[in-house]
Design a protein around this nucleic acid. Structure first.
Lengths: 267, 267
DNA sequence: GTTCCGCATGAATCGATAG
DNA sequence: ACTATCGATTCATGCGGAA
């Protein structure tokens, strides 16, 4: 037993706005969501038209702000659809409106979808990216950058073989920016920090749910914004009964493995 | 002589808003610009603070709309900077305001900067992408998708996307030596359309101008939005005398090569 | 002509300190 | 309290000279 704490995964059933109202203030460390995009997924979630989207979603973001801890983060995966030949501006307006609610728009990560949906149109190419908007309640928030470090690029192998005298000391840039470098700092460094562009393929095996949201995406943000050895209790909110059954089936499968080391419960 | 038309490159000197007013309505096929980002380039272009940015830039976009042909495109390369720990919203507001001017916001391409600026901060990673906003006057516009097709497969895709000017001349010389063999390589190799994510490195050898705008970027849009065998006359507007001198020097070097096939003039 | 290797450079941002 | 300046930190690329 590495950790004797009890960890729970709660699946709450119903409309997210109503469910959220039952949760306490400042109780959640991280929120990751990919709401149904406007007018898409009509068959499953009813579909919200672009001009009603913010009217529908802003009350939810307001509740999310209430339940999020002050040092927590909210990641919103979204992409505006094309209406009438143009990219619709509702996402831009959503960001502006959320700031009026008191959210800070800290960053916009890009999810580069390496295997984007094929297709051809006369006036545009395949859409190969989505927004991952980071919102916070306060300027200082929890972030564990070391948890998502990546391998250093190939350049380092060759570059570091023969260091010149200049490489061994701090060399300040000529343009007066104060920017300087000491190449010898890289000796023995195997991992570096990533950038704000994530290269991930969409998952095609998610047959029974309409969101093509790869597991690696929330996983990356969970690593980045929550502490590794803390208990990571989680909550999921879902309105469609069939999906709830599917989720619970998957969770039960995993429970057996998890319980070998941790006291794990599905609620 | 492939083409007997006269092609001209005009370098107009002065403030772009004033210069634009001298150009005729509906006379330009394609506009590609990367205006100084808010508060950056203080040393060279004076710098406009984020809250004054749109006030400064919207009169220019209004003139750009007047001079653009009805089926032309306007590509705006821009990225908002961080102010007070947040991404500033002036670019979002610019898009909304430009639509009020009558522009259509057709698409947002992403420029993934492979060699983004280094740095480490407690609350964010390196910024590795910029916006390439496509605006149009009408829903139907000129677009030549076949001109930017890429080879199928990851190897080819990366190779083509990474092409620098140097790469291209090298490749050409290879073509010259092994002509028959290369042709056979092309046969049967399928070409596909690219996506709306461009992977390009910034160019660091641009010693006398601070813009890290790779040649490949405007080149890609010129191929995509203007017809290959048309005469591609061009206009550049620049306010700093030193840069004008630099541009003219570069153009004169190229003139000798170009004039072997085309009647080329610098104005 | 080609490959190898040294090296400068880049649309940055935060936090502390000074005015 | 608010603004201005300054130091610290960091990674990948393409050019140019050498082999």
């Amino acid at each position: 037993m590495i950790n004797m704490c009890k960890i729970t995964t709660k699946i709450l059933e119903g409309d997210s706005l109503k469910i959220l109202k039952q949760l306490s203030d400042d109780s959640i460390d991280l929120i990751v969501t990919s709401p149904p995009y406007a007018d898409n997924r009509k068959k499953t979630y009813g579909g919200v038209s672009p001009n009603k989207y913010n009217e529908w979603f802003l009350p939810i973001t307001s509740e999310l702000k209430r339940v999020l801890k002050s040092k927590g983060s909210f990641i919103l995966n979204i992409k505006e659809k094309v209406t009438n030949g143009e990219r619709n501006t509702y996402v831009l307006e959503l960001i502006i409106k959320m700031r009026e609610q008191g959210w800070l728009w800290t960053e916009e990560f890009i999810w580069h979808k390496k295997n984007s949906f094929p297709g051809k149109w006369p006036n545009r190419f395949r859409d190969s990216w989505e927004r991952l908007l980071q919102f916070n309640k306060e300027k200082k928030f929890e972030m564990y950058q070391d948890a998502v470090k990546v391998e250093v690029g190939n350049w380092a192998k060759n570059r570091l073989n023969n260091l010149s005298e200049k490489d061994k000391t701090r060399d300040n840039s000529k343009n007066g920016s104060g920017f300087g470098k000491n190449i010898s700092n890289w000796i023995g460094r195997e991992k570096v920090y990533p950038t704000n562009v994530l290269h991930l393929a969409t998952e095609c095996n998610n047959k029974n749910h309409s969101a093509a949201f790869p597991n690696a995406l929330p996983e990356w943000f969970i690593k980045l914004f929550t502490k590794e050895n803390d208990t990571r209790n989680s909550i999921g909110i879902e309105i469609i009964p069939e999906y709830i059954a599917e989720i619970k089936k998957k969770l039960k499968k995993q429970k057996k493995n998890i319980q070998k080391t941790i006291n794990y419960e599905i609620a």
